[in-house]
Simulated assay, not measured.
Amino acid sequence: MEELIQVSFENERPTVSARDLHEALEIRTRFVDWFPRMCEYGFCEGTDFNLLKNEKVQVEGKRLINRELLDYQMTIDMAKQICMLQRTTKGKLYRQYFLDLEKAWNTPEQVMARALQIANETRDQLSIQCRQLGLQVLEQQKQIKIMEPKASYADIVLLSDSLVLVTQIAGDYGVSPQVMNKKLHELGIQHKVRNQWILYSKYKDKGLAKSTTFAKKRPDGTILTRIQTEWTQAGRMFIYEKLKEQGIFPIVERR
């Protein structure tokens, strides 16, 4: 079928420009007067037509001026009825053109083609959404991996209820007991009294550490008794939180 006027198929229903139809029908009345008069036959905006704003570049004097040009996208049914109202040869010609267009648009083949197009578009949209969800899942998995070491260290601490030496805690961070004790002293947690590290008074009654006595046999057979500080699991977690504030993490939490 030869195209007499440009038809837009971008929406669910094909449409034509009111200005294009006004020109094709060779209407002598100005468009701005003619279109409102056509609307008086009961056509409704949003159902039969929609406002369309275009820009037209025109020469005024020696300047190029952009002017807003009002137009309307009309349904084929509205265009067909307007053609009939004109009662002209052109009107009859274009009305028949729109009737043929409607028949072609509503053939089973065209209906099926549009259904397949909608299905393909829906599939593509779902594919995009799935990819986006996949990326979100990957990002969440990354975050989980980042968080897992923290949970793992906490689990290690919670699994044990025994006292631990600073040597064991230092080992969690890959440093020597001397380095760990010095760091805890710098943080104002403990100080040294007669070769034993003692918690400062504000931490003493928190259940963080206990003093235990151990005996060591000398080479000459005599027994040497000493007191040492051992940390509870609560104390171990306390140290973890304090060091974390300094940006210091146990080995299991490092990348």
Results as ranks from 00 to 15, higher is better:
196 Q>I: 13
188 G>F: 06
213 T>D: 05
127 S>K: 07
111 V>R: 04
202 K>G: 03
190 Q>C: 09
12 E>Y: 05
129 Q>R: 14
58 Q>C: 05
176 S>H: 06
131 R>A: 15
161 D>A: 09
141 Q>Y: 03
38 M>L: 01
189 I>V: 14
66 N>P: 08
244 K>P: 02
212 T>K: 14
101 L>K: 01
133 L>D: 10
185 H>K: 11
26 E>G: 05
60 E>L: 13
180 M>L: 01
121 E>C: 05
140 Q>N: 13
112 M>K: 08
1 M>P: 03
31 F>A: 03
147 M>F: 07
143 Q>G: 01
46 G>S: 00
42 G>F: 02
42 G>H: 04
245 E>W: 03
88 T>A: 04
197 W>Q: 01
6 Q>Y: 09
39 C>Q: 15
40 E>Q: 10
32 V>L: 10
253 E>W: 03
24 A>F: 03
162 S>M: 12
103 K>G: 04
69 L>E: 12
86 Q>P: 02
141 Q>L: 11
213 T>L: 08
205 D>I: 06
179 V>Y: 09
67 R>S: 07
39 C>S: 15
120 N>F: 04
68 E>A: 12
239 I>H: 00
62 K>D: 12
130 C>Y: 12
173 Y>W: 04
162 S>G: 10
109 E>G: 05
196 Q>K: 11
76 I>W: 04
154 A>L: 15
65 I>K: 00
144 I>Y: 07
242 K>F: 11
55 E>A: 09
65 I>A: 05
181 N>F: 06
201 S>E: 15
11 N>E: 14
43 F>Q: 04
168 Q>W: 02
248 I>V: 12
200 Y>K: 08
12 E>P: 03
69 L>A: 10
79 A>Q: 04
82 I>C: 09
131 R>E: 15
159 L>D: 13
102 E>L: 10
198 I>S: 10
90 K>C: 08
197 W>C: 06
85 L>K: 14
48 D>Y: 01
249 F>R: 05
109 E>Q: 09
231 W>G: 00
151 A>E: 04
31 F>K: 00
207 G>C: 00
207 G>W: 07
11 N>C: 09
253 E>D: 00
117 Q>I: 06
7 V>Q: 06
195 N>G: 13
31 F>E: 02
215 A>K: 13
240 Y>R: 07
16 V>Y: 00
247 G>H: 06
219 P>Q: 02
222 T>E: 01
189 I>T: 02
79 A>Y: 02
80 K>E: 10
185 H>I: 08
134 G>E: 01
13 R>T: 14
33 D>A: 12
230 E>R: 08
247 G>I: 12
198 I>K: 14
211 S>K: 10
194 R>E: 13
139 E>G: 06
174 G>Y: 08
95 R>F: 05
46 G>Q: 02
62 K>T: 12
215 A>R: 14
214 F>S: 13
124 D>R: 14
225 T>F: 10
198 I>L: 15
131 R>Y: 06
168 Q>K: 14
233 Q>A: 09
56 K>V: 14
178 Q>G: 05
20 D>A: 03
219 P>Y: 07
242 K>W: 05
191 H>Y: 14
67 R>V: 15
203 Y>E: 01
197 W>N: 02
149 P>V: 01
99 L>M: 11
54 N>W: 03
